[in-house]
Amino acid sequence: MIEILFYMAGAIALIATVAALTQTNAAHALIYLIVSLLAVAVLFFLLGAPFAAALEILIYAGAIMVLFVFVIMMLNLGEAGRSREREWLAGRNWLLPGVMAALLLFELVLAVRHAPSLTSGLAVDPKAVGLSLFGPYLLAVEIASMLLMAGLVGAYHLGRRFIVRRTGRR
């Protein structure tokens, strides 16, 4: 019976992804994309990877999506921003994503109630991940840190010129 949760979450992930990539309004697409990421996080939890599920929500649905929101809001400054914002707050835009997210929360509650059976067997706990990450995969951690450093420097370089020109022109 608990297997149904997996297929439900998978269907929600697929539907939300298709809905996200076929929208014309970037902000609406972002809401659907967040629902899709939440669905994938529930899939991770059901597959016995609670650490990965938490990271998916924190970093993907939290940090990376906030970057998208910032850029969309920055690009929409100026013409007709307020009426567009009022349109975004209309109920029909967030009703379907809200229903999907509520379904995912329901699934998560059900899964947590089944937690002893879910985290037994082949589930991988965070301790094993940490031990392996800072044991045999230490070089990969270093490479990831160098990659993040390169991303930080690159993003600062691109964004700094944007900000300086904008304030200099005023």
Binding site: I59, I64, F68, A150, L152, G154, A155, L158, G159
Partner: peptide
């Protein structure tokens, strides 16, 4: 994370 930060810049 690195890709999206550079991409959005």
């Amino acid at each position: 994370a690195a890709e999206v930060s550079v991409g959005l810049g």
